[in-house]
């Protein structure tokens, strides 16, 4: 980028992650923020390794989240199960395409897009690439923000299960995909937090 930009790290300074206070670290690796008491460091510890580990775990959870049933419906003795895709197809067949689109984006597209984005940034950082740094930073911020929307199905099942409990008539019970979705969301959020976007800018041509 521009030549007259100074990185805080090069001057032995760092900004607090929690409150933004600028601290002079010099040769110390980390210190306690004088303003808010958080730990201040130049870069997050083992950022790349931790982000990869969390990302791979999240990807493993993504598979049962989409293949296993999210809920079991028992209606007059008849058992049925619903996966995310069967729910999307149900809405599509009833002409509810906006809702089908919402569920499909939140549960299928958003998590995979977030995981690909984080993996892409990790690979760029590991290869020492200094290309498209501003674009990659914006991608990172976007990925960080959108991940939580995949939780929507867990909330839907909770509400349906709470309302449809009619003794032996109809009951709704959560399936194994619920916990898989929740774990995937938590793991991708931790992966995004573990990845330090400042690493994108540590590379120079």
């Amino acid at each position: 980028m521009s030549d007259n930009i100074v990185r805080a790290k090069d001057l032995g300074m760092a900004g607090c992650h929690t409150c933004g206070q600028v601290v002079r670290l010099m040769e110390k690796k980390h210190c306690v923020c004088p303003r808010c008491g958080s730990d201040v460091h130049y870069r997050k510890n083992n950022s790349i390794t931790r982000a990869w580990a969390l990302l791979i775990s999240a990807f493993i959870m993504y598979i049962p989240a989409n293949t296993e049933p999210i809920m079991y419906t028992t209606s007059l003795g008849q058992q049925g199960s619903d996966t995310i895709m069967s729910g999307v197809i149900y809405f599509l067949s009833h002409g509810d395409w906006p809702l089908a689109l919402v569920i499909f984006s939140a549960s299928v597209l958003v998590p995979i897009a977030k995981m690909i984005t984080i993996a892409y940034i990790l690979i760029m950082v590991q290869r020492g690439s200094a290309r498209r740094q501003a674009e990659n930073t914006r991608l990172y911020i976007l990925a960080e923000l959108m991940g939580k929307w995949s939780m929507v199905d867990v909330f839907v099942v909770a509400l349906l299960a709470a309302l449809i409990q009619l003794g032996t008539l109809t009951t709704i019970e959560p399936g194994p995909a619920g916990m898989a979705f929740a774990s995937m969301v938590i793991l991708t959020m931790f992966a995004a937090m573990a990845l330090d976007p400042k690493l994108i800018w540590d590379q120079t041509e």
């Binding site: 990185r7 001057l11 740094q133 911020i141």
Partner: peptide, 30 residues
């Protein structure tokens, strides 16, 4: 005021701004 960009670590000296305004990072734009 001295600011370190949360995203790209660029160190910037920013003078006080009028209410209603926002300062973006010179380097990465966040």
């Amino acid at each position: 005021i001295c600011f370190v960009c949360h995203e790209c670590d660029a160190l910037q000296q920013v003078s006080a701004i009028k209410p209603g305004n926002t300062v973006n990072c010179l380097c990465c734009g966040s």
